[in-house]
């Protein structure tokens, strides 16, 4: 109920626009047969020439007629300063439009994304090895991840309707402003039985197009609100709120050796593996629980079906606990009350 109430409160400034939309949808589907053929012809002309020559400016009035665009704006809870025409521009890729595309905004968004994501990961896990850090950042902001956010979380649609179908449906041109517009890779060739793998200039994959739009929405959020806090909150809400299990990303070549090196470097006592519990040593499936100790302190513990396996697993556990050290209430440099935290010596070199 709270959700509905919230949306009711929020909907007030958009009431006029929404009511316009309803009329628009009526007209699209011949309920009120007001849509003239002239308008449909315009649609065909502009959409058919999806080459670089077409660089029409989408006005705010035109954009507000697109029901899809308005609903997407509301779904993302974007502020009022973020104009609908800007959102339409974010969904227009360079390949489908001349000058007014999302390319510039995408670069701005990319910088914001990589800054806030790497800052957050570095502050949360100060001892993360560079290679793991890079792939963790990549997991959050790679094309595939951003495309999945755009498609499965925000529900952005691709403009795939053929022009003839648009014409027959008497669909106004404004409607497609709410869809992701790009020049897809055309698999057709003149040769029979030959499939094209390489792309022509300007042709892009749907994944790339989705990620371009997601990045540019973030860039445009900053460009239209001039508020770093809002942009940061948006990134934390939509991208960093996702679950990423970094502990599964580690792979160690010689964990026991690496652990003893680490202890030597940090001035701890030499690590010793001790058997904590065992069961069925002489059976087919024995279980050993081994702990790695440095003096009195237990560094890690794990199980295994042989003593050697259990020892290796315990060392891996100890190493992961070291690398995945997480300070309490980590603060990032962009926070107001930031105080410099731990700076790590780097990974252990074996």
């Amino acid at each position: 109920m709270n959700r509905i109430r919230n949306s009711l409160v929020l909907s007030k400034p958009f009431i006029n626009q929404s009511s316009k939309l309803i009329h628009k949808s009526f007209s699209t589907t011949r309920f009120v047969n007001q849509t003239t053929t002239q308008e449909s012809l315009n649609t065909t002309q502009t959409t058919s020439s999806s080459s670089a020559s077409n660089s029409k400016i989408i006005t705010e009035e035109e954009a507000s007629k697109s029901a899809l665009l308005v609903s997407l704006h509301r779904r993302l809870n974007l502020p009022k300063e973020f104009k609908l025409s800007t959102l339409a521009r974010c969904l227009t890729c360079r390949s489908s439009q001349g000058k007014l595309n999302n390319y510039g905004l995408n670069i701005l968004g990319k910088n914001f994304l990589s800054y806030y994501v790497s800052e957050n990961l570095l502050a949360t896990y100060p001892r993360l090895p560079t290679i793991i850090l890079n792939s963790a950042i990549d997991s959050y902001i790679s094309n595939e991840s951003l495309a999945s956010i755009g498609e499965h979380s925000w529900g952005i649609e691709v403009d795939q309707t053929p022009i003839l179908q648009k014409f027959l449906r008497e669909e106004p041109i404004e409607y497609s402003y709410g869809k992701l517009r790009f020049l897809p890779v055309n698999p057709k060739t003149n040769e029979k039985g030959v499939t094209k793998i390489t792309k022509n200039a300007g042709e892009i994959d749907p994944t790339v197009a989705y990620s371009l739009s997601v990045r540019s929405i973030i860039g445009a959020l900053y460009a239209s609100t001039k508020s770093e806090t809002l942009t940061k909150k948006f990134i934390y809400d939509h991208i960093l709120s996702r679950k990423l299990d970094i502990s599964t990303m580690f792979e160690f070549e010689q964990p026991t050796r690496e652990l003893s090196r680490l202890c030597k470097r940090e001035g701890f006592e030499v690590p010793i593996a001790r058997l904590l519990a065992e069961n069925g040593r002489l059976t087919k499936k024995p279980v050993f629980v081994v702990g790695v100790f440095s003096g009195e302190n237990k560094l890690g513990e794990s199980y295994g079906s042989s003593l050697k396996e259990a020892k290796i697993r315990a060392s891996v556990d100890a190493l992961k606990k070291w690398y995945l050290y997480k300070p309490l209430n980590p603060k990032v440099p962009s926070d107001e009350d930031y105080q410099p935290g731990l700076i790590d010596h780097g990974i252990v070199i074996v």
Binding site: S7, S11, F14, S19, L21, I22, T29, A67, V70, S71
Partner: peptide, 10 residues
């Protein structure tokens, strides 16, 4: 429709 602005009605 106005009370559900996040949904498009067709």
């Amino acid at each position: 429709a106005t009370s559900n602005p996040k949904i498009e009605f067709k």
